[in-house]
Design a protein around this nucleic acid. Sequence first.
DNA 1: GCCGTTTTCGGCCCGACTGTTTTCAGTCG
Length: 571
Amino acid sequence: MKNDQIAGMFDLLADMLEIQGSNPFRIRAYRNASRNLGSMAESLEEMVRNDEDLTQLSGVGKDLAGQIQEIVTTGKHKQLESLRSEVPPGVLDMLRIPGVGPKKVAVFFNELKLTSLSELKQAAQAGELAKLKGFGKKTEQSILEGIDQAAEAGKRVSIRDARRWADEIVQDLLKVDGVTQAEAAGSCRRRKETCGDLDVLAICEDASRAMDALEAHPLVEKVLQRGDTKQRVRLQSGIEMDLRVVPEESFGAALQYFTGSKEHNVVVRGLARDQGLKLNEYGMYRGDDYVAGRTEEDVYAAVGLPWFPPELRENRLEFKLAEAGPLPELVSVKDIRGDLHMHTTASDGAATVEEMATAARERGLKYIAITDHSQRVSMANGLDAERLRAHWKEIRRVREQIDGIEILCGIECDILEDATLDLPDEVLAEADWVIAVLHYGLKQPRDQIMKRLMCAVNNPHVDIIGHPTGRLVGRREGADVNMMDLLKAAADNGVMMEINAHPKRLDLDDVHAAAAKDLGIPIVISTDSHSVNGFEMLEYGVDQARRAGLTKKDVANTRTPTQFRKMLKRN
DNA sequence: GCCGTTTTCGGCCCGACTGTTTTCAGTCG
């Protein structure tokens, strides 16, 4: 039983309790626990097996500890099972309709006995919803429109798309007459790997000018709401965006407020309250007196906190770091000196060794590793021993010809389904840099997955585990990796861990990267480039590392070429 | 249901927008 499965059960429970009109704080407790469980590195199953105290986990008390234990040991959750028989699954689907929440769903279910989206649609078309108390024609119409979107709703977009759209709109808003400042907030600013919606803030003397501009923007499909200070639109891509127009003296407070995360803000507001202050999106107040709000720095300073990089604002690490002293400086793109995962035309890349090396040098990199696929990945024209040796010969030739950048002879070697490596040890021994990865058999049971990873970690020639879970963000779950066991073994064997920078991978994720750092494992942020444009992905990997609280020191490829070589096992 | 403690019960964020309501409830972030 994986952590996120258990978290999912608590979320489902919360949905059902909400429709039943339970105590909202009890519901929040389930959601809160769900979130915390979903973002922890240790496996709950292991914790139960080792008889560890689950109430140590934040948001988990005696009751939930018992429920987790029940789920892990029996695979079931009695309370959830009995609620399931009371609330049909189709009723939960109704929650996905924009503007429809638990109260409305309860009315549909209890008064009209509707149990699915299609029944709800028929009732709306027959005009039955508008007859209900508290409902009218407009609500009925908007539900009718919303039902078709329900399937799409909740879809998240990659940080890369989110940033492209948000940045474009921000840049265009800044050109609008009267707009003096504009910035993206929300999960996009925190660089979360996916975004459910976009938030943009602007200062504009006449808010309607900014809103008119947004309404006319080519990326915008439709205005969903428009008030005096807030406008909500849907972009062509289907994702929704909020624009808030705020006064200058509130910009910092609003930026802080709308950047979140919610959990981070709860803590900040709590600290404010403890000091007799009140924080909202307009500013920090003592009674009715404005204390701060122009900048985020002012807001944090008013409660005795340092300014936090947005990537840290998840209420996971940042408050502990702040308590321990000045915040560490997080790693940044300019710190990265090497890129140690990339492909060429020898396997499935689009550029030659020479082209990749030249492009890397132009981007200011001092060393790279060429790591084409091994033979198992036949689809990608993976290399067998003979072709690999010829390829390395070619790399050495280019190495002699190009100044200003070091090139390592590497390989991205598959860890096969039977827990052996795709190339013999004597071949791997000739490499400068060996990345071991899972590509196939990702659905194998945990025991076999771990057997494979341990085989790689224990091999003396393996330098690093690449994209350790093999997940594809929003598309494919990764293998069932016991990450803490893998990290401990990696630490014991001097094996590094990769943060694969491609926005579709971002693997390790932020939580596991933080766990790796805690164990002292050197982390490498690599782009896995398949063309010269691939190097642009570096920033997404760096953002993920920043979310894990990594500094320059924690990231091996911030070292100079000489320093980096000294970190390798074979030296 | 959790948490903290001014230890065992009270607090748990709150403001914008919409629609239906004529003073507010529901939803959302």
